Structure formats: C-alpha cells, structure tokens
Computed example of a mutant assay.
Amino acid sequence: MTTKWTLTIDCADPALVARFWCTALGYTASDPPAGWDTWEAWFTDLNVPEDEWNDGASISDPNGALPSISFLKVPEPRTVKNRLHLDLQVAGGRSEPQHLREQRIRRTGDELLAAGATLVQEVSTDNTLDHLWLQDPEGNDFCVV
C-alpha cells in the first residue's frame, strides 16, 4: 500500500516562496479546508493570530494528479546545499534535437529568473547546455533540464 505524501520546503516567507513555485510549476494556491471560502476565514474562525497567517502555505497541481507542496516558516536560514531538489523537466529529453532542448531550457530559465530565481550555474556537457542550476527567491536549489 502506498502512503499519501507531500513535499515541504522550509523557508522564511512561505507566501513569497509559494507564489514563486506556483509560477515555476503551473500550480495554484491550495484551497482552504471544506466549509471555509478563504484561508482568512479559516484562520479567523480558529482564532489563529494574524501574525501567524504566513507561517505556512500550500500549493497544488490544478489537475490533482501531482503531489501538493507545502511551505513552512522556520527561523533559521538555509546554510548548506539542498540534498533534495526539484528538476523541472522542460527540454523533452535527450532524444530531442539539442537546439530545441537548449531553447526550452533557456526560455524556462529566463521566465524563472524574471520571477525571482537566481542563476547558480549553466551546466554543459561536451560544450552543449545540459541544464541550469537555479535557486528560488530564498536560495533553495532546483534545476531546469
């Protein structure tokens, strides 16, 4: 039997990082629990202090097929390279012509840089672009391949 799971990303500003990843993945903000029209209404009804409303966030695949991703506010900054990261697979695979792969990788990279990502490194193999190593607005690593 499988276990339902979600990925959680530690961060300082869950709302900011969640918005970035909505852009990166085509996800949407997760709906509030059943019975509430908004998260604000849910927080209010549960007497959550307003200064805690950005302690977490969640995004979901709008088609419901892929796992949700949660963002949890933590006090400490990231100090070392991630041991787990996402690879955004946009190039179409190695069977695609290299010039198309590179166009797709660069187009997505440019969109994410405009959305707040930072380029760490362009990774090449045999003098051709293989992937981009990027970081989200809080320094969490991911790749565009």
Rank of each mutant, 00 (worst) to 15 (best):
T8N: 06
T8H: 09
T8C: 14
I9H: 11
I9S: 13
I9L: 13
I9Q: 15
I9T: 12
D10G: 14
D10N: 14
A12C: 13
D13E: 14
D13A: 15
P14Y: 08
P14H: 07
A15N: 02
A15E: 13
V17T: 14
V17H: 07
R19K: 12
R19M: 01
F20E: 11
F20V: 09
F20W: 09
F20R: 08
F20Y: 14
C22H: 04
T23D: 12
T23W: 01
A24M: 08
L25D: 04
G26H: 06
T28A: 11
T28F: 01
T28C: 10
A29Q: 12
A29V: 12
S30F: 02
S30Q: 08
S30L: 12
P32I: 10
P32K: 01
P33M: 04
P33K: 03
A34E: 00
A34Y: 03
A34T: 12
G35V: 08
W36I: 01
D37V: 09
D37S: 05
W39D: 05
W39Y: 14
W39H: 07
W39S: 11
E40N: 10
E40C: 06
A41H: 09
A41R: 02
W42Y: 05
F43H: 07
F43G: 04
F43Y: 09
D45Q: 03
L46N: 11
V48S: 00
P49E: 05
E50G: 01
E50D: 08
D51N: 12
E52Q: 04
E52I: 00
E52P: 04
E52T: 01
E52G: 01
W53A: 00
N54V: 06
N54K: 00
N54I: 07
N54P: 06
D55F: 05
D55P: 06
D55T: 09
A57T: 12
A57R: 08
A57W: 00
S58Y: 00
S58I: 10
I59C: 06
I59K: 11
D61Q: 02
P62Y: 00
P62R: 04
N63Y: 02
G64Y: 02
G64N: 10
G64R: 05
G64P: 00
A65W: 00
A65Y: 00
A65L: 11
L66E: 03
L66V: 01
L66W: 04
P67G: 05
S68F: 02
I69S: 13
I69L: 01
S70Q: 15
F71I: 11
F71Q: 10
L72D: 13
K73G: 13
K73V: 12
V74Q: 07
V74F: 10
P75Y: 07
P75C: 08
E76V: 04
E76D: 06
E76K: 07
R78S: 15
R78G: 15
T79I: 15
